[in-house]
């Protein structure tokens, strides 16, 4: 059974994704923005899978959902690493 909180999370997450896309032009100026963007996108996909798993292929989609979490967190870690170990000049560029 689908949890209300999951639906709300999905709605909020998707809205945030829209916000992100709407301000892409500005936010692109963040260093290694692609990593952040794909990290969040993967997270939103996982939330979608959380809801979908209640209807079909619950086990497979659940596995995909958690795989998505792993990818998302890995991309985030990679972003942290790159921003932390690159020189200030590179970041400013």
């Amino acid at each position: 059974m689908v949890e209300t909180s999951e639906i709300i999370t999905l709605v909020l997450g998707t809205a945030t994704l829209f916000f992100l896309c709407a301000n892409m032009q500005q936010l692109r100026k963040l260093p290694f923005f692609e990593l952040i963007f794909y990290s969040y996108l993967t997270l939103v996909v996982s939330w979608w899978l959380t809801v979908l798993e209640e209807f079909i292929w619950s086990d497979a989609l659940n596995l995909l959902e958690h795989t998505g979490y792993l990818i998302s967190s890995s991309l985030l870690a990679l972003w942290c690493y790159k921003t932390a170990f690159k020189s200030t000049e590179q970041i400013k560029k």
Binding site: L30, L63, L70, C80, A84
Partner: peptide
């Protein structure tokens, strides 16, 4: 296992930020 790996990734990120912080707002 997947969640644990995700947690490790996050812990790795936190450790980077703690020990290698730079004074940049987005970090």
């Amino acid at each position: 296992l997947l969640d644990t790996l995700a947690c490790i990734s996050i812990l790795f990120s936190i450790s980077i930020l703690i020990f290698r912080r730079k004074s940049i707002l987005w970090l």
